[in-house]
């Protein structure tokens, strides 16, 4: 069998493939930066960011926990996307029982309507069931439609002094929905607010960026994430012309990749001094540490480009 081994070793030795130079430099710079951190008294290994292999059984409890957390989050968030709650059966039942209120008192109706219902419920443990049946019967009674209509208007019609209720936008028009909601001056609908939050969350997940600023700058979360990714690629490659054209747009210069590295950090790790200067000139955060706690200055000190270190110090890097 040794012939196979020998042949393989020969073929493997003749294989000209090797790690890229940038990979080599990144690894050595990272190791040097970690050593510098340790020398400074910081232990960069307090947190383990490694993802365990898929075949490890320790994933199971983590998976169950994640699913449980996701389910709970879903339960909490979902109601915000549902239409506003209509009147409860007890409220309508009270209203249709003859206590119709004049329009100008409708704003305080919930409290006033809830009180008799609560008293009724306190006296009768089967109140909810009875009230439900009562609602069904009375809504079809002779005096029902008018009273129910007037009560329904309370929940649909806005107060006379307020602006019109914004119309729910079709899917994919979060931006216009948000603007419409903002124009209602203090009467923004919960749904619009929830959609805005959802869009910002998407921006953070999609691009690892600062979310709100990215959304405001590049229009949509996806576009912002893509532009930020392109910026990082250009920084890493030291492509100054592409960087300049991207920085001329309103890209989020401090967007981060999955390791928490900004475009500035990537440029430093690759020793791309021109890219570093460009990014600093466009407001890149000179103190934005990555997920390992490695700061731009530490990364620069580990490299062999004194110009980068000087530029960072001028930009206030600590």
């Amino acid at each position: 069998m040794n012939d196979i081994d020998d042949d393989y070793r020969r073929a493997s030795a003749q294989d000209p493939g090797q790690p890229s130079e940038s990979t080599r430099r990144t690894i050595l710079a990272h190791a040097a930066a970690l050593a510098a951190q340790r020398a400074a008294g910081k232990d960069p290994v307090n947190v383990d960011f490694r993802r365990p292999a898929a075949n490890q059984s320790s994933w199971r409890p983590a998976l169950i926990g994640t699913l449980a957390a996701a389910g709970l989050a879903g339960l909490l968030i979902t109601p915000q996307f549902l239409p506003s709650r209509g009147p409860t059966s007890s409220e309508i039942s009270t209203a249709v029982s003859g206590k119709s209120l004049p329009p100008h008192t409708l704003q305080e109706a919930p409290e006033r309507l809830a009180a008799p219902a609560a008293r009724s419920a306190a006296n009768d443990s089967t109140a909810p069931r009875k009230l439900g049946k009562s609602l069904a019967r009375k809504s079809q009674a002779a005096d029902g439609p008018a009273a129910a209509d007037s009560e329904a208007r309370y929940y649909v019609a806005p107060p006379a002094s307020s602006a019109p209720t914004p119309v729910a936008p079709p899917a994919g028009t979060y931006e216009s929905a948000d603007r419409a909601a903002a124009q209602t001056a203090g009467t923004a609908s919960p749904a619009a607010s929830a959609r805005r939050n959802f869009a910002v969350q998407n921006a953070i997940v999609a691009g690892g960026s600062t979310g709100e600023s990215a959304r405001q700058k590049s229009g949509t979360p996806t576009a912002a994430a893509e532009t930020a990714a392109t910026l990082m690629q250009a920084a890493e490659a030291g492509d100054s012309s592409r960087l300049q054209s991207l920085l001329a747009t309103e890209v989020d210069v401090n967007a981060r990749d999955t390791h928490g590295r900004t475009a500035l950090m990537l440029a430093i790790l690759r020793g791309e001094s021109d890219a570093v200067n460009l990014l600093i000139a466009h407001g890149a955060d000179a103190n934005a540490a990555d997920s390992d706690g490695l700061t731009p200055l530490q990364a620069a000190l580990a490299g062999t480009q004194p110009g980068i270190t000087a530029a960072l110090r001028r930009a206030g890097a600590r």
Partner: peptide, 22 residues
């Protein structure tokens, strides 16, 4: 895939550097 190998290479050696004290 060489690009994937490069990426994994970084992950492996980052882990070595990080866990050196341990």
């Amino acid at each position: 895939n060489r690009a994937t190998a490069d990426e994994l290479m970084q992950e492996v050696w980052f882990a070595v550097a990080r866990d050196a004290v341990r």
